[in-house]
Each structure stands twice: as structure tokens, then as C-alpha cells.
Write a protein that binds this DNA or RNA. Structure first.
Lengths: 334, 334
DNA sequence: ACGATTTCTGTAATCGATTACATGCCGCCT
DNA sequence: AGGCGGCATGTAATCGATTACAGAAATCGT
């Protein structure tokens, strides 16, 4: 692999000149510039990233720490991140972490010297300390994290607002027995959506056993199981609000298999509006979130920090979430 | 950020000793080892990756070049890759490239000095040259690429076999008018699956207009459009084979919206068996591929190359693909 | 024509690690 | 007591870039 020295020797100039040509820094005469570029092309030279980042102490790389890499939600987030990162000439180092304190710290240490900043998505409520200590050494932007205002820079989905809208939709349609399929325990998004479920049911005067909560973990499989549980519930709910689309789809499947028609017998509402939601049978009523925007905005914020240093103010940014009514929700049967 | 020098100074030893302690190399007395570790912990020292990889010329990072980051298929592939990479103490640098020669070369150059090896998924038939030249400088493993035996190291889905099985299933059920929704043009996977479609229909004596091909691009939206086209076709097919599940799901939606029942009026078969396939309504008959295994195996192969150098032989590995019959396929109505 | 600029290029320090080699110290043997 | 071997540690070169500073060559002004 050709190094800057090889190019310098071959071109009969010093390494400094080669460096200046490659970076358009300093002044170089047109003739040598051209000559050096020719030699560099001939040798297939490309600068060694590690060497460069050692001296410049910049890596042109951003790190992403995600709790999982499963399903369309994360896939869309990464997509947004990648798009922005690539447009800015940066690279993307991806890592998954279960989200507990120790693992986040370990991931951070491993990334030292590899990235200029970190995008952390850790909706786990227990991971705050790690993130806080991390931020002191590093530009960090939080994605969907339970962070206090001003404490960190963060981008968050309007969970409560979106879920409230979904729940109000069901209540307005006349539903009085509603089940919620919750997400992972101790998960920020899940908790916020659940809070909305509880608030709206309470406001509507709906209480157990007419407002039931079934545990899930954001996967289709858990949604399917929850759907089966709901089939067996008595009194049976006339509507189901799932904490995300994957579970809503799983539930849809279980309810259909149990002989119920959606929305005639039971309504189903999801959250996220993953691309596939509109192609469900029936098309899924869900809370639309511009998922890739979540990634885009977070990346833009992080890049600001990386480039402008501490001049950037910390703030919490909300990504709006609005209900999209499709065919999976209707009026209650009975 | 503390460097090795800081630790050395603080501990009253030389940088060599600190390095030896951190890497368990050479001999260090127990007392100094402990002392150095204490100081390192106190200072929160972690070695600088760029500096280390400069001298060792290893980065502990693998690069992944994907044509897209969209949907559950890629999400599953990345998941498998990440799992393997992480278990081996490596990192993952992800990049998307449209797949043409120039872009692949550019991505490769940008990754020099950042990764020890590259996983390339570029099913685009035009990208061969880039990949070939790349391989001379770099451990490379190809994912789903149209590579000749022995030429490259590659992992490929048994496209033809799987698609043949799906098509035989439809023919055996008595279907005589079958439509195929193809994937992107000049895409290896799509072409292989199409080849199976053509071979099996020919063998069964089915010819146009009873065997029609509708263009798609692997997205749900394109599947939906294709489904609409199939609704209008006359004679209308009794079965649809989509080159992937996303399009099958899109088609399912369009056919349902057009008033057709699946599988009573028309059968639909997909490819990939993405996690969501079994939760469709009706559950999707599809060709199962252990998608994350694709990523796992590719990563394992690449790691072998990275670690054992040229001692590893090049070969083409096939990931099996088998039909899973669910409810979206049945006997033809008429 | 000669010093002062200006313009271009080279020398060498630097980033933070690794590692071959040198060195110092201690104990043991004869 | 002198020398030798082995263990623990330090010195310094090295990886491949960037960049401050120095120096050489060319241009300019008077």
C-alpha cells in the first residue's frame, strides 16, 4: 500500500508538498501540483486514515450506539443517520449495546480514538449515569432518551402527544374497553405511551377491567402473544393500542387467527408508522413518526457539536407524532 | 483525554511498561503491574485506537458496503454481521453505496486505514471490476454477488433453487397462469429468481400471456403497483411470485384492495421470509432464507482472512433457501 | 545592482501507541 | 571477589500523516 513517502520519493518532492497537494492547503505551484497528483493516481495512493487522525485528532467518523438492530424502526433510523453522515463526508461506526451502564461505558471506551462524536439511543431508564459521564469527554447526542431538559442534547419522539391522539381517537369512536400492549419494561418510549394510555382512559372514566395492559417487548412475536391474550380476555376489549407497529401487526395476526374481523369486531392502532404499516390487511391505523428524520436531525445536531465545539447550546428537540387513520380502527361493534 | 504518557508519568514508569501492562506482553513485576493499572483506572485511560492501529497496522474494524439500508432484509443482515463482529471484539464501519464501480472504489479508498477487511454486497451486475481490483489490496468477502467460483470469496443465497421450489409449488397446485414481480433491473438476486420463473414455467408448458413478468424494485410500493397491474391483466393470473417479501406484501395489499381474496382467488408467494412474513394476513407462503446467517457466515469468513492472511482458500458458499408454505398460496380458483 | 518581498518547497517536530534492543540490578556459582 | 545469567525496566525507532518554521529561488522596487 503506497504511503505519502512513496509518492514523495516517486515525484521527487518532499512529503510536505504531497500533503499540501492532497489537502489543498498552503501554496503549491501548478506544475508540481499536477505532477504530484499524477504520481499519486499512478500509485493508487490514498491517505492513511489512522495516521491522519492521530495528528489532526479528528476521525471523520461518528459512532452510533443502538439498543438493537432489529426491524424496520431501527433500519429507518440508521438510514436517516447514514444519509446525513455520508452527505457530510463522515463515516459511521455502528454498535449495538444492551443498554446497561457498564456496556455503554465499555462501548464508549472502545470507541475512543475512533469517532468524533456519539449518537446514543438508550431508552433504558437505567442507563443515565453512563451517558452523563460520557458526555463530559465527548460530543454526544441522545436519541429517544429519558433526558432532562438542557441536561443533554437530545432528539425525542413526541410519544405522549402521539399516543394521546391515538387513544382519543379510539375513545371518540366510542370504545369503552381498550387494551394496551406495552413495550419493554423500563423503556422510556413504552412508558410515555403507556402514560398517555392511562391518562386518556382515566379521563374517559374507563378503569380496569375495561382498561387492561398486556406486556410485550416490541417484537411481532410478543404482539402475537398479546393478541392471543386479548382474545381470551373477558370482557373482551373492542380496541387495542400497541406501543409499536410490530406488535400491532403481531396482534392483528393473532386476532385474525382467532376469528375476529378488524375493524368490525375489534380495532387495532399502532405506533411508528413503519413503511409496511399501510400495506397491512387491513391497513394499519397508527401514529406516524418520521423515523428517518429522527436519525437525520440527531446526526445534524451531532455534527454541529463536532464542528463548532462547545459553541452549540444544548437542547431537547421533539419529533412530532400524529395519528394516521387507516382501516384497522373503526367504531366498536357492541 | 489521558494518553499513555500521562499514565507513565503519573505512575513513575516508562511508556513501554504501561504498554506492556495494557497488552499483557513482555514481563512486568506484579507490583508495578498493579500500580500501573491503578493509575490507568484513576486517569480513565483508554488506548487511542488510531495511534495503535498506525503502528500495528490493524484496526480491529470491519467495513460493510451495502446497496441500501432499507427494510427488514438488510436490517437482518446487519444484525447477523454485528453479532459476529462484536463477539470477536471487532468494530463495524457501515456504508451505503449505490453500487456502481466508481462509488465502490471511492468507498474503498475512504476506508483505507480504517478497516482490516471489507464485506461487500453489490448485487448489481455492473460492479464486478471495482470489486476485483479491490480484492488485490484487501481481504474482501462478497455477499450475494454475481461472482464466479474461486474468483472471490463469497456467500450467496440459493436463489435459483429456492425460486424453483416456489414455482414448482405453484405449478403442482395446478396454477397455469402465473405472474412474477421482478426485482431491480440488472440485479443478481432478481435475475436468478427470474431465471427460475422462466425455466419452471417453460417446463410446465406455460407461456405468455399466461406467464407474465411485472417490473418492481424490491419495495412494498413497487409491489403494490405491480399488484394493481396484475388485477388489470387479462387473462388474470391465478398466482403471483414476487422476487421478495416486501413486494409480495405490497401486492397482497393491492390485490386485497381490488377485492380479491388470497388464496381463494389468487395465490401469492414471496422470497426471503422476513420476520414479518408469518404475521401477514394471510400468512405469507415464501422462500425461507436464514438472512442473519448470511451476515454471520460472511463475517466469519472475512475474519478468517483478516487473521490468517492468505492462508485461507477462496470459495463460494451457498446459503440454502427452502419454501415455507403458509396460507397465502392454494389451489387455483378456476 | 542589491536588498526586500513574495512564492514555493523542504526539514523536522508531533500525535500516541508498540517493540527491538540496551541497560541496570540482583543473586548465584566457582 | 569477579563474572555471568536472567529479570525488570527504560530508550528510542517506527508507523503515516500534518504543519510551523526555515530556507531557497524568483520577482520587484528604486
Amino acid at each position: 500500500m503506497a504511503s505519502i513517502k512513496d509518492v514523495a520519493r516517486e515525484a521527487g518532492v518532499s512529503v510536505a508538498t504531497v500533503s499540501r497537494v492532497c489537502n489543498d492547503s498552503g501554496v503549491v505551484s501548478d506544475s508540481t501540483r499536477k505532477h504530484v497528483l499524477d504520481i499519486a493516481a499512478k500509485l493508487g495512493y490514498s491517505p492513511h486514515a489512522a495516521a491522519r487522525s492521530l495528528i489532526t485528532s479528528r476521525t471523520s467518523t461518528l459512532g452510533v450506539l443502538l439498543p438493537d438492530l432489529y426491524g424496520e424502526f431501527f433500519s429507518e433510523v440508521i438510514r436517516g443517520i447514514d444519509r446525513t453522515v455520508q452527505a457530510s463526508g463522515y463515516h459511521l461506526l455502528v454498535s449495538r449495546s444492551h443498554g446497561d451502564d457498564r456496556e455503554i461505558v465499555a462501548a464508549f471506551r472502545a470507541m475512543r480514538g475512533r469517532v468524533d462524536g456519539l449518537l446514543v439511543m438508550s431508552p433504558d431508564l437505567d442507563a443515565r449515569n453512563a451517558v452523563t459521564s460520557l458526555r463530559d469527554h465527548f460530543p454526544v447526542v441522545l436519541l429517544n432518551c429519558p433526558a432532562e431538559q438542557d441536561q443533554h442534547d437530545s432528539i425525542v419522539i413526541a410519544n405522549y402527544e402521539g399516543a394521546s391522539e391515538a387513544m382519543r381517537h379510539l375513545v371518540d369512536r366510542g370504545h369503552r374497553r381498550i387494551a394496551m400492549i406495552t413495550g419493554l419494561a423500563r423503556n422510556y418510549d413504552s412508558d410515555e405511551r403507556l402514560r398517555a394510555f392511562r391518562d386518556i382512559t382515566r379521563q374517559a372514566g374507563i378503569a380496569a377491567p375495561d382498561a387492561i395492559e398486556v406486556g410485550g417487548d416490541f417484537t411481532e412475536a410478543s404482539g402475537f402473544r398479546a393478541g392471543q391474550a386479548i382474545l381470551d380476555a373477558s370482557p373482551r376489549p373492542t380496541a387495542v393500542f400497541a406501543a409499536n407497529d410490530s406488535m400491532a401487526i403481531g396482534a392483528l395476526s393473532a386476532l385474525g387467527a382467532g376469528g375476529l374481523r378488524v375493524p368490525e369486531d375489534i380495532s387495532v392502532v399502532g405506533f411508528d408508522d413503519i413503511p409496511m404499516a399501510r400495506y397491512m390487511n387491513p391497513p394499519l391505523t397508527t401514529v406516524h413518526v418520521d423515523i428517518s428524520t429522527l436519525g437525520v436531525r440527531a446526526t445534524e445536531r451531532l455534527l454541529e457539536h463536532v464542528r463548532d465545539g462547545n459553541g452549540v447550546t444544548r437542547q431537547r428537540e421533539l419529533v412530532p407524532a400524529h395519528l394516521v387513520v387507516r382501516s384497522s380502527s373503526g367504531n366498536p361493534a357492541a
